[in-house]
Design a protein around this nucleic acid. Sequence first.
RNA 1: GCCCGGAUGGCGGAACUGGUAGACGCGCCGGACUCAAAAUCCGGUGGUGGUGACACCGUGUGGGUUCGAUUCCCUCUCCGGGCACCA
Length: 863
Amino acid sequence: MQERYDPAAVEAEAQQYWDRERCFEAKEDSTRAKYYCLSMFPYPSGRLHMGHVRNYTIGDVLSRFMRMNGRNVLQPMGWDAFGLPAENAAMANKVPPAKWTFDNIAHMKAQLKSLGFALDWSRELTTCTPEYYRWNQWLFLRMLEMGVAYQKTGMVNWDPVDKTVLANEQVIDGRGWRTGAPVEKREIPMYYLKITAYAEDLLDALKDMPGWPERVRAMQANWIGKSVGVRLGFPYDIGGPGVLHAFTTRADTLMGVTFCAVAAEHPLAAHAARGQPKLAAFIEECKRGPAIESELATQEKKGMPTGLTVRHPISGEAIPLWVGNYVLMSYGEGAVMGVPAHDERDFEFAKKYHLPIKSVIDVGGREYSTEEWRPWYAEHGRCINSGPYDGLEFQAAVDAIASDLSRSRLGEKQTTWRLRDWGISRQRYWGCPIPMIHCQACGAVPVPDEQLPVILPTNLVPDGSGNPLLKDAAFLAVACPQCGADARRETDTMDTFVDSSWYFLRFACPDNDKAVLDSRVQYWAPVDQYIGGIEHAILHLLYSRFWTRVMRELGAVAFKEPFANLFTQGMVLNEVFFRKPDAGRVEYFNPSEVEIRLDETAQRRIAVLRSDGEEVESGGVVTMSKSKNNGVDPQALVDEFGADTARLFTMFAAPPEQTLEWSDEGVQGAYRFIKRLWKAVHDHVSQGTPAALDTAALNDAQRGIRRQAHHTLAKITDDIGRRRTFNTAIAAAMEMLNALAKFPQSSPQDRSVMQEALEIAVLGLSPIIPHATHAMWRALGHETALIDEPWTPVDAAALQTSSIAMVVQVNGKLRGHISVAVGADEGTVRAAALADLHVQKFIGTSAVRKVIIVPGKLVNIVV
RNA sequence: GCCCGGAUGGCGGAACUGGUAGACGCGCCGGACUCAAAAUCCGGUGGUGGUGACACCGUGUGGGUUCGAUUCCCUCUCCGGGCACCA
C-alpha cells in the first residue's frame, strides 16, 4: 500500500475493476429481492453541475448500501435529450441540435464515470433516439384510441418572431424570453391529454403515499385544486332564451347575489359588445391583460355593465350582468355570481361601481358594515335574509338550494378542478414528432402502427424563423394512410415532459424493439427510490403518475404509482460576487476568481478580484446558477481532489434534503479526512498481519474501542438505511477515527482490535467513498472486492458494558455524574445519586420531594 | 390571502421517542516539527464573571404544559418555498 493517498491512481484502479467485472450490470433474478434506485435523468446541457453531483451521489450511496445489504440493485442512467437549449445552441453555432446533443452526452457520460457512480450503462437510453421516441408515438396513438388524447383549439402564448408557442414560464413581462417580442394570445389547434379525467384519483392516492415528502404531496394537491360546489344557472333572454352558468362554492349565499360578471372572453360579453364600442374596447383591454402574472392578483378590479340582465334562479329577480377583469375564462365557466356581502373581490367591485350589498349570512354576532371589508364576512354561518333558507347552516343551505334548483334544472352539485388538460403540442423542431397526418379529404389521420416510428430528421439547423420541419419537403410529404392522396405530416412535436413521463419503466427493457415494455418490468418496477430536485415536485412527477395510470389501463404495468419512495434533495448554494457600475449591467464574478481576506483590523471580510486586486461586492449565498456566475465546476473538483472528496463533501456538509452551502474549506476538510483514514490504514498494515481477535481477552481500553466501532457501525447502518442522514453517518466515522488515533498500539490484541475497527470504518464508508475504500479493503488483507462484500452485522456483545454513566440533575439542572452497574435497581441508583458530593451541595438543607429515574440515562432530584 | 418548511456558537450543522444543548467539520487562538513556509501533529475554542475550583446566562419573541422543553401547545417576528382575483 502506498503511503501517500493518490486519488487519481486509486480511482482509476477501482473504476477499471468495476468496469472489467461488469459489477453494475443488473440481472433479473426472481429469487432475490430487487431494489430499483433511480435518480432523475439529466438534460445533456454540456457539463455536469454540482446539483447533478449531489443528486447522483445520494442515489449511488443508497444503491451501494442496498447492494451490500443483499438487494438486487438496478441503478440506470439516461438522457432527457430533446428540448429547447439544443435548438438555441444550434442557432448560435450553426450545428444541428443532434450533434450538439450527442457531443454533450459523450462528455457528461465520461464525467459520470469519473465520479464512480455504480450505474448500469448497458441500459442507457436517450430520448431523442427513434428507439426510444417511437414508443412515445405508439403510446400517443393508443391514447388517441382510448380518448385520452384529443385535439382542441385553445388559447396559447405565441411568439410572433420565433413563430412558436411559448410555455408560461418562457413569457417574461409579457415578452418572449428569447426574442423580447410582445407575446400574442392565439387560438391554435393542439393535442391534449385528458389528465383531468384522472384528477380525482391523482388527488386521492396522495393520501396513501407515505414514501413521499409531505411537501410534495401538498404541492400536488394544491396544483390539482379540487373545489366542491354548485353549478348555477341564471336564465336570460338575450336574442333568444339561454342560461348563464356560474360555479360557486358558496351556494348558501345565493340570495345575496346583486350582480353577475363574466370574463372578457365570454360569449355573452362578445354579444353585448356589438354596438357598444366602449364595451368592446374594454373587453379588448381585458384580453390583453396585465403583463406580469403576479400583478394579476393585485390589479385593480375593473368592470363595465353590459346593459343586459339575467334572472335570479330562485327569486326570478333581474340581475345586472357585468364584464369583469377579475373573472377568469379558464376557471369554471368564465362567469361568477356576485355576492358583495360575503366575497372580498365582489365587495371591492360593488363598492367601486355602487352596486347593492346584501348580507345573507349571520357573521356570528360580529360587526357588519358595508363600509369596510372584514375577513369574517366570508366565513360560514347561518343564513339570514334568505327566505326559505333562513336559519340553515352552510351545508344544509347548500343541499337545500341545490335540491330546489335541480327541479328547475338551474343548479346541480359540481366539482371543479384547477388542473387543466395537458397540451402537448410544441411548434418546435427538436422533439418527438406527433404521429399524425393531415389529409384534405380525411382530416387528421393517425399514422398506422406499422409506419412507426415517424423519424425526426437530424440534419436540420433552426434559424429562428420557426420550426424548420415546415420547410423540410422530405418530412412533410406523405400519402394519406386512409385514401392514399397526397397529405402533409403534422410538424408539431411533443412536449419534452412526455419523454420523461415513462422513461423509468423503459429502463427495465430498453433493448426491446418489439414492445414498449415486457415482463422484465414486472420484476423491476415500480421504482423503489426516486431521487431528484424539488423543482420537479409538480409537473414531471404529476405527469408521470398520470402516465403510469394510462399504461396500467393499457395493461403494460400492474400498478398506479410509479415511485414508491421519493427523495427531494436540496439545492446547492454558493456566495455570489459582483460589481455594479454606475452605468451598464451588473457584472458577476465566479468565486474561483475571488479571494477572501480580512481587513487590517481583522473585523471585516473583504472580497477581492484576483485579476485586478480591487474589491468586489458580495451578494450573499444563493443557488448556484449561470446567471449569477457562482457555480463550481465539479470537474475541477474531481481533478484536484478526486471523486471521493467531491462525494464526501457533498454528503457531509448538510443533510441531503436541505440546501448545501459550498465551502472550499469544507472540501479541504473532506480531503483531509480521507487522507487521515488512509494514513491510519497504512500505518496499521505496514506493521504486518495482526493476530486473530480474541474478544474474551480484551482490557477495558480495547473493549472501549470495540464498543465504539460497533456502535459506529450501528449508527452508519441506521443513518444510511433508515434516516438518510449521510452527514451524521460520516460524523460518526470521523469520531471513531479520532478515537483510533489516540488508541495505543502496544499489544497484539491492540492491533487485532485496530484491524476490526478499520475494517468497520472502511466498509461503513464504502457507499460514500467507494474508490479509496476499495483500495484500503485490499490493503487490509482481503482478496475479495469490497463492492461485493455483505454489510457487516453489528456484534451485540461488543456493545455491552458492565457499568453505565448516568447524569444527575437537581431541579432539572445538570449537577453531577455517577457510574452504576448495569441492571442496578432504582434504590441503588437513587442512593448513588444522592451520595454524589456535588449533588449534595445543591440539595443543601432542602427536603428531597421527589426523585425521577430514567433508567440508563439520568436521575432528577426535585427539592 | 391560503398551504408547506425553517430560525441553535464566528460559519455549515448535531441532539432520532420530552431527559447531559452545541456531536462532527470549518474558521480562529496557542504549541510542536521546519532556516522558513506549506503540509502534518497536539491542545483550546457558546457568552459573562472569576487567577482558579466554579457560578450564572444561553436554542428567533412572549407565554403555557412538565420534575425536566431546541423538542409539545398558544402568540408574535423574521426568512425560504409552493399556489394565488380559483368564484
